[in-house]
């Protein structure tokens, strides 16, 4: 399913079900390979994407993921945007704490995936939902 994708364009994937989370992982992996990320960095960014896509599904009530190859001078990278129009995150500081969970998870989704990527931005509000942008650069 990842064959023949045009990596010059942002790749979009909606997140409505479990299977979509798997699709997000496969998409991110394909883009990470194309951006020449090392094996460990590929694994890190795919894991982060898996955590965040699951958050989008479970806490955001579904949403969309967009994966783009970005370039910064000599380095390439993968940028992923997770957007949902769910209830937003009431206490961001608390949500970013290791071990905190409002659902039934391990509470590592947000805090853990932040450690796995190089850049991590989060915008959240009750009206518009949550939008998380992460970037992983090749070394």
């Amino acid at each position: 399913m990842t064959a023949g994708i045009d990596l010059g364009q942002p790749q979009a994937q909606s997140v409505r079900s479990d299977e979509d989370v798997v699709r997000v992982r496969q998409l991110v992996r394909a883009v990470a390979v194309a951006s020449k990320l090392s094996l460990v960095d590929q694994t890190k960014v795919v894991t982060a994407a898996s955590e965040l896509a699951r958050n989008t599904l479970v806490y955001g009530g579904g949403g969309s993921v967009e994966v783009t190859v970005v370039e910064n001078g000599r380095r390439k990278g993968v940028q992923i945007v997770f957007a949902d129009s769910g209830p937003g995150i009431a206490d961001l500081d608390l949500a970013m704490t290791d071990g905190y969970t409002s659902g039934g998870g391990l509470g590592l989704g947000l805090s853990g995936s932040r450690r796995l990527v190089d850049e991590f931005q989060i915008e959240t509000s009750v009206e518009t939902g949550t939008r998380i942008t992460v970037t992983k650069w090749s070394r």
Partner: peptide, 10 residues
Amino acid sequence: AVAITLVELG
């Protein structure tokens, strides 16, 4: 790579 990632993930 999985082990390294798990350590980083916590």
